[in-house]
């Protein structure tokens, strides 16, 4: 680790000021990504701003047909929330399969989405559910928020505060974990929403999380796993590494999509 100054603002406003005062500063949520990055000296932010003292960033509430989750809600809190279980049970299940217990009790939904790891689970859910990202400055659709590998629409000085999910008719997420890291090698989120079926894939895209129009179209006629049987996923845009070739990952997208639809 390189030495850094540590700040723990008590309000969003203070956090905003601290960010502006220290260009290159990093926000700290659960630290599950940031701390290892710092330890390996892959980042040298100079200032680290811990969000954990800011009240109200953890709340999970249902308002009408929308589920609101504070950015600092941990994976364990989402997994254990009655409101999440009632509104979008598949989201609670997703959270309960992130990493291991230690990671789930420290890692946050905001940290995960802001980090936009191409193998993270939440981005697929956010995209499939058509979530809205609320920051201290504006709101963004999931579609606009994710911008490729580890890239989002967030400005340097922007803080993600809450994610709101329109409650779908059905939602499920099927994950094929990378055996080593337990991140998604392929994760497919499927949702039957007011605007029609949506399918989003994580872990497999050379450019991060993405939607699969061919699968969405196939589900328009009926939200049934069988409807997806005939769809072949091409390998263009699918990444390959020592754990899985593009062919394998493309194949798994089909398998996981069918399993997700069957589970939804």
């Amino acid at each position: 680790m390189y030495a850094f100054d540590y700040r723990r603002p008590a309000t969003l406003n203070e956090a905003d000021l601290a960010l502006k005062a220290a260009p290159g500063a990093k926000l700290l949520a659960g630290g599950q990504t940031l701390i290892p990055t710092l330890k390996q000296r892959l980042a040298n932010p100079g200032v680290v701003i811990d969000l954990s003292a800011i009240p109200d960033l953890k709340a999970i509430t249902r308002k009408g047909d929308t589920l609101h989750i504070g950015a600092m809600a941990t994976h364990a809190e989402v997994a254990g929330s009655k409101d999440v279980a009632a509104a979008i049970p598949g989201l609670a299940t997703l959270a309960s399969h992130i990493g291991d217990p230690q990671v789930r009790h420290k890692g946050t939904i905001g940290g995960s989405l802001a980090n936009n790891d191409p193998a993270a689970d939440y981005p697929a859910a956010a995209l499939a559910l058509g979530a809205t990202m609320h920051t201290n400055k504006r709101t963004l659709s999931a579609q606009d928020f994710f911008q490729g590998l580890f890239a989002t629409a967030l400005d340097d000085n922007e803080i993600l505060t809450e994610i709101s999910f329109p409650i779908p008719k059905r939602f499920a997420y099927a994950k094929f974990p990378n055996p080593a890291s337990l991140y998604a090698m392929v994760g497919v989120a499927v949702a039957e929403t007011a605007g029609g079926p949506r399918v989003a894939v994580t872990g497999a895209g050379t450019d991060g999380v993405f939607r699969v129009p061919a699968l969405e179209t196939a589900l328009t006629g009926g939200f049934k796993a069988d409807a997806l049987k005939s769809v072949t996923i091409p390998t263009t845009g699918i990444n390959g590494d020592i754990h899985g070739s593009p062919e394998y990952r493309a194949h798994l997208i089909g398998v996981m999509a069918r399993r997700a639809v069957a589970a939804a």
Binding site: P179, A180, S181, Y183, I242, H243
Partner: peptide, 11 residues
């Protein structure tokens, strides 16, 4: 070494 961490080397 491509598998130089637990992220890629599966214990």
């Amino acid at each position: 070494l491509v598998t130089a961490s637990f992220m890629d080397y599966c214990m």
